[in-house]
Design a protein around this nucleic acid. Structure first.
Lengths: 219, 219
DNA sequence: CACTGTGAATTGGTTCACAGCC
DNA sequence: GGCTGTGAACCAATTCACAGTG
């Protein structure tokens, strides 16, 4: 049984490997902007604090992108990773945002989404004073229009920036409207059915873990 | 060699375990607010999608907090975890913020830091129009005062919310000023010396990884 | 000959399963 | 009887080491 890379079976690539691909992509785009055309796994590893072997093995899950004796062509590899992730140039994932408080507004104005394959195309809030407000070409809509607005539109990814107490309810509504991936900023980890991905961003959890190490671990 | 829990050696607890402790703490505080006094590893696991064995083993790195036949007293366990992490009630880690754009401002107004053991006590920016501005009891200071302000103050944790192009330089300055942990929101992973912790929060990386799964993995 | 791609070896993390205790 | 705490077993991820190649 000769397992060539990318034999079409799903679930074969470990999550942790998928999670590193965007990191590689980032680094490659930076190298590209510096005019660097060729990079070895060793150089890339030095840049990212990742072992060369890890990088080569990770990439080998998706294909053979390098040249022996040379390394990887920066542009070629970055294109390949974009392709793998589904964020190739030309594709832009439409994203829904729920919660337009100060964090939600900051996200609406964040320029990197557009550059990296995503665009916020709908924004919702419960707060009546926000509804109807126009921000960056978008009109903030009431949350009860969420299902109607998203069900037919094919939006598959949402960002949740509401208080923790509302997060579960909002996520439930999003899933009912066909959302398959949620980037959650609320300080509450919502429960979701199989087939839906959640990625939680919670600065407090990160700070607490770092506090342990700053303090000096177990004392 | 009989390795009892918490034998005082540092570095013995895997990072991944430390990273889960804040998650447990979150859940326990929620249970506590619901008036629940006792919880088993099985119940907590069901709530968090973590196996009971994992929870018990994780906790056992730090001590024996449960009662056989009963489970864990919610209040007792949450206090113990706070103690372990160094975010016990009464302690509040002072934190420096660099970058007071829309994201930085949102962070300044984020009420959870205070509740969970952290307080932003200094805020810096390069933008002259921000400097001197008062936000939430804090005066925004120019970044060249960073070293002076932090070196003597004992602030060990910083939040970086500047553009990617400035992140490395800012982190270098923070480290020179004695910072030991950085929560980095810039879309660039800064290089740091041993002994300094960085936690990167990058929504684009999360979205790109989720896009892969929404797309259906390798196709 | 410097590098990739990849099985094999190793390390680290998770889950099992049960002794001990309430 | 129900649950914790924990060695042992298992599984997953990382690293090694080298054959293969431009």
């Amino acid at each position: 049984m000769q397992k060539t890379a990318n034999n079409g079976f799903e679930g074969e690539v470990p999550d942790v490997v998928v999670g590193r691909m965007p990191i590689y992509l980032r680094a490659l785009l930076l190298l590209n902007s510096q005019g660097i055309e060729l990079v070895s796994s060793h150089e890339l590893g030095a840049l990212l604090d990742i072992t060369p072997a890890q990088i080569r093995k990770d990439l080998s899950y998706f294909g053979r992108f390098g040249k022996q004796g040379k390394g990887y062509r920066v542009h070629h590899l970055s294109s390949a990773i974009r392709e793998v992730l589904g964020v190739g140039p030309g594709t832009q994932w439409p994203v829904a945002l729920v919660g337009v408080g100060s964090l939600g507004l900051a996200l609406l104005g964040y320029p990197n989404f557009g550059r990296e394959g995503f665009r916020i195309v709908e924004a919702f809030d419960v707060n009546p004073s926000q509804i109807g407000r126009r921000v960056g070409g978008l009109t903030i809509r009431p949350i009860n229009e969420l299902n109607e607005a998203l069900s037919q539109s094919g939006v598959k990814i949402a960002i949740v920036a509401v208080p923790g107490s509302q997060a579960q309810q909002v996520v439930d509504q999003l899933i009912a409207a066909g959302i398959k991936a949620v980037l959650n900023y609320a300080p509450y980890s919502p429960r979701v059915p199989d087939g839906v991905r959640v990625s939680n961003i919670d600065p407090v959890l990160s700070l607490q873990a770092m506090a342990y190490f700053v303090k000096g671990g177990t004392n």
